[in-house]
Design a protein around this nucleic acid. Structure first.
Lengths: 203, 203
DNA sequence: GTCTATAAATAGATAGAC
DNA sequence: GTCTATCTATTTATAGAC
């Protein structure tokens, strides 16, 4: 596999990443991907065997990259929970296509089998980064929480961050809804992080 | 339009509601809908003009029914916020197909134009029922909140309820993830409602 | 590794008989 | 209002020349 080939493969993945996120798997044709990537139609099947496999590769790479970014930020910056949540929110804003594709896959019975394939460490705590939130909460509280307590907090916070990112991408941005600027949403994320942390402290 | 015709139309909508929710719009063919509904293929276009229009009718009816159920519960039972949130959560569990279809539509650039068509009173506060949450919060607090404060609380609570319902339908149920029984999730919803309400009280 | 051409299946929609 | 038959377009995937 030479440089030219790598470039073709990467151009296909970049184009497909965007199209799958916006139009979904069934809503996007291989021809459209090839056209957007400015490569020949047949090269998609040559490099990825078939459309389904291309989809799987995109999911896996996005999941891995996200997981590593979260872990790396936590390990190097040792942030407080609020800052970690904002980091995640901003990451999802930049990598909005990966988040959308992952979420759509999750909601689709046809493709949800990719979930277990993509999942590694965070399998039980939902989307990539769940375990990092759990670690961060316990670091901030300086205590180990019960598994049910921890699961609730992680689910609540991660759901809030991802849901808010998705709404921002799909609704808030284009419809000019009040109190939904990036700054508004970011301080909303901080507020919930503070709330949950305070509540966990009391138990 | 006679009784027989009404029955056919309703059988098509029932089948399409489920299939669109599970497989998405592009992932579901008119033939599949007709087959599942046990009606002739051509009757779909006869009764709904085209596939896109059938999709729109399903969205509108689901949105309206949901909106009315929320308003009706609030007006007749005058519940506290916690109970309203649990009512919504249970409603979405029963009407899971409508929630999934609505959410998928929202995330799809191709079909998001249905949103403004479906939206009536709650257009600015997201999914159907947003305004009811706002009313309930202010009733419980016995005070009128600022618009930004209110918007944050409604968004946070509604997002939590819908996101939790979706995760339950798509992940928790089939994957046997710990602390994600309906009872667990319900008490999680209550907990967040309590937290947010307490926080709003302090301002 | 890249291209053209094409196979084979399936899609949405409609015409016309009943 | 319901059916069969069919038109047209588009889909994924591949065979084979270069």
């Amino acid at each position: 596999m030479n440089d030219h080939s790598l470039e073709t493969k990467s151009k296909i993945m970049d184009a497909a990443r965007v199209l799958f996120a916006i139009q979904g798997f069934e809503g996007t044709s291989v021809r459209e991907i090839a056209s957007q990537a400015e490569v020949n139609v047949a090269s998609v099947n040559y490099h990825f065997t078939n459309k389904e496999n291309l989809f799987g590769e995109i999911l896996r790479s996005g999941y891995l990259e996200c997981s590593q970014a979260m872990r790396n930020y936590f390990d190097t910056e040792s942030p407080e929970l609020e800052d970690l949540l904002v980091f995640m929110f901003n990451y999802f804003s930049v990598k909005s296509h990966d988040l959308l594709t992952y979420f759509k896959m999750m909601m689709s019975s046809q493709h949800s089998h990719h979930m277990t394939a993509a999942g590694t460490e965070d399998e039980m705590l939902g989307p990539p980064g769940g375990k990092v939130i759990a670690d961060c909460i316990q670091k901030d509280l300086k205590k180990v929480l019960g598994p049910g307590e921890l699961a609730w907090a992680v689910r609540t916070l991660f759901s809030h961050v991802t849901h808010t990112s998705i709404l921002y991408q799909c609704c808030f941005q284009q419809n000019n809804i009040p109190f939904t600027t990036l700054t508004d949403l970011e301080s909303g994320v901080r507020r919930l992080g503070r709330l949950v942390l305070n509540d966990l402290r009391l138990d």
